[in-house]
Design a protein around this nucleic acid. Structure first.
Lengths: 219, 219
DNA sequence: ACCTCCATGTAATGAGTTACATGATTTG
DNA sequence: CAAATCATGTAACTCATTACATGGAGGT
């Protein structure tokens, strides 16, 4: 249960409504968290009951009323404590990588198509992220102020950007690998044109070595 | 609901027990999936009821009996279809990145300590992954056979490895950044030694540029 | 006219985790 | 002698997603 800390962390900075929190999740925290409004609202009520946050109703003209939450001293204690505690392991669910893992079930051409399609999806996302970061950076430069908070959130945003860049590069390299090993998919039909093992071996080893050195030579 | 497809995907390759499936998740699929036995067993029963898989009881000596599952034609259809369909977006929950995002709440020294600690955690994991991949690769070289299945799973494993390598590098670079910007944390106490904005700006821009080029110059 | 933004919630369902229950064999 | 491995499951609980409900303001 870390939605609690995602909310407390945000409220340790500014007061906010449930709606604001959701937007912050989507805009700047999507690399490590996500949640629905229908989960955020009950959680806010729970945190208020635990006296980690308080709220006040703010009526507005031409817009619905809003409930603005503030963190309490108890809430500050809770978040400070949590930030300095040993982290839980990440829980990743990446359906696309799972599809790739099982793509021997479809043809080489379809594999390439899927990889290209997903590369496009990621490229689009990278572009959006770049723009968000760019805008945030411009407003920092205008204010001429750097704080620990801005520094740490920049660090996380950079991690998100480089993750996208690398995912896109991986798609590219994997497309090339599949392209070069296409004939492996024909193993049942024609025995002739199938890639010899030693050639495939070379290709896969090179593919690994662009990203990570597997064997450190010992001599 | 993709646990279904994780199981069907595995059974499209070999027959397996619930226990085997769990091990495969932990050993080779942990980069994109994870699940508990208490979730796998009921799911297997459900898939059998849907006639996507079948089972037979195999008694063993000195070990508990086991229930070996095989995929049916219906199951093959289901997995083939799914692999070629547009993927759901990934769902990441990375509590450590979230902690980093909120680490303005603790001192610069504590931040550096946390980053170093987690870097160690990731280094350990990388080492384990390297060994798993190495062993798998050795056995492939012995068999002298390359198949689409081995190719695609290698691609996913490499993605996992490079992800770890990059995460470790990010920790390193972020430690350096925080080290250089340490005095930002003293802003309240001494107004003197605080880092001027322009210097901080330079440091952060360099930090971004090692990983990703933010602004493409247009002239 | 329709869609998106603002704003808050409840209800139902689905997915995931932890705890409980059992028990022989092998490894450190 | 304790811990891990093999092997299957149920029950209780927490967390996450989708659907439902409401409604005005402003843009295309």
């Amino acid at each position: 249960m870390t939605l609690k800390h995602a909310i407390l962390g945000l409220l340790s900075k500014w007061d906010a409504t449930g709606y604001d929190i959701k937007k912050e999740f989507d805009d700047f925290m999507s690399i490590f968290w996500h949640s629905h409004l229908s989960q955020i609202y009950p959680e806010l009520n729970k945190l208020e009951a635990e006296e980690l946050i308080t709220s006040k109703l703010v009526p507005q003209e031409g817009k619905p009323h809003k409930k603005v939450y503030s963190i309490t001293n108890g809430g500050i204690d809770e978040i400070t404590n949590w930030v300095g505690s040993p982290p839980d392991p990440p829980k990743i669910k990446d359906p696309f990588l799972m599809q790739v893992f099982f793509m021997d079930n479809i043809s080489a051409d379809e594999v390439i198509f899927q990889l290209k399609y997903y590369q496009g999806v990621r490229q689009k996302r990278l572009k959006e992220m770049k723009q968000t970061v760019q805008e945030a950076w411009e407003s920092i430069k205008e204010r001429q102020t750097m704080t620990p908070r801005l520094l740490m959130s920049s660090a996380v945003l950079r991690r998100g950007l480089e993750q996208e860049v690398q995912y896109i590069k991986w798609c590219e390299e994997t497309i090339e690998l599949v392209e070069a090993c296409k004939s492996l998919w024909d193993a049942d039909t024609s025995t002739e044109s199938v890639l010899p093992f030693d050639e495939a071996k070379e290709l896969v080893e090179d593919y690994f070595n662009v990203a990570v050195v597997l064997e450190e030579k010992e001599d």
